[in-house]
């Protein structure tokens, strides 16, 4: 079987190895699709939904996450249509309103074009991207962490809520957690949460370089795959 497929992303023709995801293929060519829960080498679950793209088939475009979409011959992908930008901004707004005390989340929101947050801030300390859980189970096969419960009660915890002894203390969960980097000025006081990312350089870059990965500083805080590789 042919090992490479050809697809079009935002008008550029791209070749990618069979079996890779659209997100990885795009990143490999320097096309930046914002992403949060994707970690290179781990199974993608499609939790954060920031990496959405339009997959155009027979003239109809379907919104789907690029990290869970495998490349196919002749695929046509659009990563930056007005619709996608709007949806992505709305999702990023939801995330930053949930957890303002993370530099990574704040940067990501600015990167996705959020300029105002229309919801009251909550002070969650986990956005359930599942990076820690997957690293723990897939990379270290420790199975120390997992998700417990469903709906609004879902949370990351040790087995049975108390089996800390299974943990191998590799600290990957901390390293890969987007919440572990606080905003520049430290954690915000309750009631004073705001959208930061007002650093001019960041804002300029996010506006102008939309769609192209410029090895920006944004992703550093949460191991964006450009920095982790």
């Amino acid at each position: 079987m042919q090992q490479q497929v050809t697809l079009t992303i935002d008008g550029s023709t791209i070749r990618a190895a069979r079996g890779t995801s659209v997100l990885e293929a795009a990143l490999g060519y320097g096309i930046c699709i914002p992403h949060l829960c994707h970690v290179p080498g781990l199974k993608d679950t499609g939790a954060c939904r920031l990496c959405i793209v339009e997959n155009v088939q027979n003239g109809r475009s379907r919104v789907t996450t690029s990290c869970t979409l495998t490349v196919q011959e002749g695929m046509v992908i659009r990563t930056n249509t007005e619709n996608i930008k709007r949806l992505r901004r709305n999702i990023a707004e939801l995330i930053v309103a949930e957890a303002p005390n993370s530099r990574a989340v704040q940067d990501m929101a600015v990167r996705c074009g959020v300029r105002e947050v229309r919801y009251p801030f909550r002070r969650e300390n986990c956005i359930q991207c599942g990076r820690c859980v997957r690293y723990c189970t897939e990379m270290w096969r420790a199975n120390a962490l997992g998700f417990i419960g469903r709906g609004k009660d879902r949370k990351v915890d040790f087995a049975f809520g108390n089996r800390r002894d299974i943990c191998k203390k590799c600290q990957s969960c901390v390293i890969y957690c987007p919440m572990s980097v606080t905003p520049c000025g430290g954690p915000m006081k309750p009631g004073e949460e705001k959208l930061c990312g007002k650093c001019e350089s960041v804002e300029l870059m996010a506006e102008n370089a939309y769609g192209a990965c410029v090895h920006c500083e944004l992703g550093k805080g949460f191991q964006c795959s450009r920095h982790a590789m």
Partner: peptide, 8 residues
């Protein structure tokens, strides 16, 4: 309550 809670 019934959402699995996986996606944002």
């Amino acid at each position: 309550d019934e959402s699995c809670g996986k996606c944002i």
